[in-house]
Deep mutational scan, measured.
Amino acid sequence: TEDEKKIQELLKRANGDVSKAEKLAQSQGNEELARRLREYANK
């Protein structure tokens, strides 16, 4: 999905570090994506 692409892109930029990727999403003002990242990471 589009969200998964965004999540994978963020994870790439954060070198696979979920908490960093989450902070990136939040810094972009994207709380929804940050929440999805957390769920994605907890799979």
Rank of each mutant, 00 (worst) to 15 (best):
residue 1 T to C: 11
residue 1 T to W: 14
residue 1 T to E: 14
residue 1 T to H: 12
residue 1 T to L: 12
residue 1 T to S: 13
residue 1 T to N: 13
residue 1 T to K: 11
residue 1 T to G: 11
residue 2 E to W: 15
residue 2 E to S: 11
residue 2 E to D: 13
residue 2 E to H: 09
residue 2 E to P: 09
residue 2 E to Q: 10
residue 2 E to T: 10
residue 2 E to M: 11
residue 2 E to C: 12
residue 3 D to E: 14
residue 3 D to V: 14
residue 4 E to W: 15
residue 4 E to F: 14
residue 4 E to L: 14
residue 4 E to A: 10
residue 4 E to Y: 13
residue 5 K to E: 12
residue 5 K to A: 13
residue 5 K to P: 07
residue 5 K to Y: 12
residue 5 K to S: 10
residue 5 K to Q: 12
residue 6 K to V: 14
residue 6 K to Q: 15
residue 6 K to T: 12
residue 6 K to M: 15
residue 6 K to Y: 14
residue 6 K to C: 13
residue 7 I to K: 01
residue 7 I to F: 09
residue 7 I to T: 02
residue 7 I to D: 01
residue 7 I to H: 01
residue 7 I to M: 11
residue 7 I to W: 04
residue 7 I to Q: 01
residue 8 Q to L: 15
residue 8 Q to C: 15
residue 8 Q to M: 13
residue 8 Q to R: 14
residue 8 Q to Y: 12
residue 8 Q to V: 12
residue 9 E to K: 05
residue 9 E to C: 09
residue 9 E to F: 04
residue 9 E to D: 11
residue 9 E to I: 06
residue 9 E to W: 06
residue 10 L to R: 00
residue 10 L to D: 00
residue 10 L to H: 02
residue 10 L to Q: 02
residue 10 L to C: 07
residue 11 L to N: 00
residue 11 L to V: 04
residue 11 L to I: 12
residue 12 K to A: 13
residue 12 K to V: 10
residue 12 K to E: 10
residue 12 K to Y: 09
residue 12 K to N: 10
residue 12 K to R: 13
residue 12 K to W: 10
residue 12 K to T: 08
residue 12 K to M: 12
residue 12 K to S: 08
residue 12 K to Q: 11
residue 12 K to I: 11
residue 13 R to G: 06
residue 13 R to H: 10
residue 13 R to A: 15
residue 13 R to K: 12
residue 13 R to I: 14
residue 13 R to S: 09
residue 13 R to C: 14
residue 13 R to V: 12
residue 14 A to W: 05
residue 14 A to I: 02
residue 14 A to D: 01
residue 14 A to V: 10
residue 14 A to R: 00
residue 14 A to Y: 10
residue 14 A to N: 03
residue 14 A to H: 05
residue 15 N to A: 07
residue 15 N to Y: 07
residue 15 N to M: 06
residue 15 N to H: 11
residue 15 N to P: 01
residue 15 N to G: 13
residue 15 N to T: 02
residue 15 N to K: 08
residue 15 N to F: 07
residue 16 G to E: 02
residue 16 G to D: 03
residue 16 G to Y: 14
residue 16 G to P: 00
residue 16 G to C: 06
residue 16 G to I: 01
residue 16 G to Q: 04
residue 17 D to W: 04
residue 17 D to M: 03
residue 17 D to T: 02
residue 17 D to C: 05
residue 18 V to R: 04
residue 18 V to L: 10
residue 18 V to F: 14
residue 19 S to G: 12
residue 19 S to N: 12
residue 19 S to F: 11
residue 19 S to Y: 13
residue 19 S to T: 11
residue 20 K to F: 11
residue 20 K to E: 10
residue 20 K to G: 05
residue 20 K to L: 15
residue 20 K to Y: 13
residue 20 K to A: 13
residue 20 K to H: 07
residue 20 K to R: 11
residue 21 A to M: 02
residue 21 A to R: 00
residue 21 A to N: 00
residue 21 A to G: 02
residue 22 E to Q: 08
residue 22 E to T: 07
residue 22 E to H: 07
residue 22 E to M: 15
residue 22 E to A: 15
residue 22 E to C: 13
residue 22 E to S: 07
residue 22 E to F: 11
residue 23 K to M: 12
residue 23 K to P: 01
residue 23 K to S: 08
residue 23 K to A: 12
residue 23 K to T: 06
residue 23 K to F: 10
residue 24 L to W: 14
residue 24 L to D: 06
residue 24 L to K: 03
residue 25 A to T: 01
residue 25 A to P: 00
residue 25 A to R: 01
residue 25 A to I: 03
residue 25 A to Y: 01
residue 26 Q to I: 15
residue 26 Q to T: 09
residue 26 Q to V: 12
residue 26 Q to Y: 12
residue 26 Q to E: 08
residue 26 Q to G: 05
residue 26 Q to S: 07
residue 26 Q to A: 11
residue 27 S to F: 09
residue 27 S to G: 08
residue 27 S to D: 14
residue 27 S to V: 07
residue 27 S to W: 08
residue 27 S to Q: 15
residue 27 S to M: 14
residue 27 S to T: 08
residue 28 Q to T: 10
residue 28 Q to E: 15
residue 28 Q to S: 09
residue 28 Q to F: 08
residue 28 Q to N: 07
residue 28 Q to R: 04
residue 29 G to A: 04
residue 29 G to Q: 04
residue 29 G to L: 04
residue 29 G to I: 02
residue 29 G to H: 05
residue 29 G to R: 03
residue 29 G to K: 03
residue 29 G to P: 01
residue 30 N to L: 15
residue 30 N to T: 04
residue 30 N to E: 13
residue 30 N to W: 15
residue 30 N to Y: 13
residue 31 E to L: 13
residue 31 E to S: 10
residue 31 E to K: 08
residue 31 E to M: 12
residue 31 E to F: 15
residue 31 E to R: 06
residue 31 E to Q: 08
residue 31 E to C: 12
residue 31 E to H: 14
residue 31 E to I: 10
residue 31 E to A: 10
residue 32 E to A: 08
residue 32 E to C: 07
residue 32 E to G: 05
residue 32 E to I: 05
residue 32 E to N: 06
residue 32 E to S: 06
residue 32 E to K: 05
residue 33 L to T: 02
residue 33 L to R: 00
residue 33 L to K: 00
residue 33 L to E: 02
residue 33 L to G: 01
residue 34 A to L: 09
residue 34 A to R: 04
residue 34 A to E: 03
residue 34 A to C: 05
residue 34 A to Y: 04
residue 35 R to I: 11
residue 35 R to N: 10
residue 35 R to A: 12
residue 35 R to D: 09
residue 35 R to F: 09
residue 35 R to T: 09
residue 35 R to E: 11
residue 36 R to I: 15
residue 36 R to P: 03
residue 36 R to Q: 14
residue 36 R to K: 15
residue 37 L to T: 01
residue 37 L to V: 09
residue 37 L to I: 15
residue 37 L to D: 01
residue 37 L to A: 01
residue 38 R to M: 04
residue 38 R to V: 07
residue 38 R to T: 03
residue 38 R to A: 06
residue 38 R to C: 08
residue 38 R to D: 02
residue 39 E to S: 04
residue 39 E to A: 07
residue 39 E to Q: 06
residue 39 E to Y: 04
residue 39 E to W: 05
residue 39 E to L: 05
residue 40 Y to N: 03
residue 40 Y to D: 02
residue 40 Y to I: 09
residue 40 Y to S: 03
residue 40 Y to V: 04
residue 40 Y to G: 03
residue 41 A to W: 14
residue 41 A to I: 13
residue 41 A to S: 07
residue 41 A to D: 04
residue 41 A to F: 14
residue 41 A to T: 07
residue 41 A to N: 06
residue 41 A to C: 11
residue 41 A to Y: 14
residue 41 A to E: 05
residue 42 N to H: 09
residue 42 N to M: 14
residue 42 N to F: 09
residue 43 K to T: 11
residue 43 K to Q: 11
residue 43 K to E: 09
residue 43 K to F: 09
residue 43 K to P: 06
residue 43 K to Y: 10
